[in-house]
């Protein structure tokens, strides 16, 4: 079966200038990333800020062209699709429902926008589909008449979801969809997303820095570090038996509400990852609590889904 998303050797770089007269520097935000996501799956993408997860999402959405490599959506190359065709296949839900909705438009107009942009759809049909979609995400017709400022954060995120789904796309890219929300509202939105996926047979790429959230929603998890996916596995396996030291550290950093356990020492030290200055060898070695001398020189290859030299058979000298 054709995967919903297939990413092949994707690379995206940015040029930035450091200071007014500084030299141009190259930032490798996404570095030779390949993966595929089967239809109906939920791939959780986790990693710290600056690891390239949002850049990857923007390339897959077609908002940024790749520097190298390609993205296939339902078997079609993204670069061959025009904006309208892309919008019918793949839609985003972003983090901040305060910034991603036009404050001067009524909710029903915001949700109708993707249909209007397609062109040629009769306005009565548009109104019908908007009403249906608003009801589907738990908003009333009366709320459809309001402006974004009159809604709470959770309600705005429902609007963003309605707008993403009104074209009946196959794939939704959720970039930190609940990070700006309170926990009680986060749970409502996560439950809504899960229900919609089941009912509409959607495929999600779900980006989050919160591993507990990813564990709850994802069927597969990819861990990103400095532009590369350093570990990828079925969610249950990755959470039960993480292989990469970075995945282990991320999991150890999850503070579950269990009193008496204290704050763990994850042993990462205070060197921070800098995408403008990617270390040679294994890019994680300056922070790795179990790094060996060879990790500074040898580049690890993926073994059983994880890129670490210490895993059996990898990079034997």
């Amino acid at each position: 079966m054709t995967p919903a998303i297939e990413v092949r050797n994707l690379r995206r770089t940015f040029r930035v200038r450091s200071g007014l007269f500084g030299e141009d520097k190259q930032i490798v935000a996404v570095d030779d990333v390949s993966f595929s996501l089967p239809t109906g799956g939920v791939l959780g993408l986790v990693g710290e800020s600056g690891c390239g997860k949002s850049t990857l999402a923007r390339v897959i959405l077609g908002l940024l062209p790749p520097s190298a490599g390609e993205v296939l959506v339902e078997g079609q190359r993204l670069s061959t699709l025009d904006r309208r065709a892309r919008a019918r296949l793949i839609q985003p839900v972003f983090q901040d429902p305060f910034a991603s909705l036009n404050p001067r438009r009524r909710i029903r107009d915001i949700v109708a926008m993707p249909l209007v942009a397609q062109g040629g759809i009769p306005s009565r049909q548009i109104a019908g589909r908007v009403a249906e979609m608003l009801a589907r995400v738990g908003l009333s017709a009366e709320q459809g008449e309001r402006f974004p400022a009159q809604l709470s954060g959770g309600q705005r995120q429902r609007v963003a979801i309605a707008r993403a789904l009104v074209l009946r796309p196959r794939i939704v890219i959720c970039d930190e969809p609940t990070s700006a929300l309170d926990v009680s509202v986060q749970a409502q939105i996560l439950n809504l997303l899960a229900e919609l996926r089941r009912d509409l047979n959607l495929t999600y790429l779900f980006i989050s820095h919160n591993l507990a959230v990813v564990e709850h929603v994802a069927s597969d998890v990819a861990v990103m570090y400095l532009g590369r996916i350093v570990e990828r596995n079925v969610a249950g396996t990755l959470f039960r038996a993480p292989k990469h030291p970075y995945t282990k550290a991320l999991l150890a950093s999850v503070l579950t509400p269990e009193p008496g356990l204290g704050v763990p020492d994850v042993g990462l030290g205070d060197v921070l990852p800098d995408p403008a200055n990617i270390p040679p060898g294994c890019r994680f070695h300056p922070r790795c609590p179990v790094a060996q001398p060879r990790c500074a020189t040898q580049t690890p290859l993926a073994v059983a889904g994880a890129e670490c030299l210490l895993l059996e058979g990898a990079g034997t000298p």
């Binding site: 926990v183 009680s184 509202v185 749970a187 409502q188 996560l190 439950n191 899960a194 229900e195 919160n210 591993l211 507990a212 959230v213 564990e215 709850h216 069927s219 969610a235 249950g236 959470f239 999991l251 999850v254 579950t256 509400p257």
Partner: peptide
């Protein structure tokens, strides 16, 4: 609060 292993995958979180 989502806690790894607390709710079975596919089950709804409390809200």
């Amino acid at each position: 609060v989502p806690v790894p292993g607390k709710v079975k995958p596919g089950d709804a979180l409390g809200s």
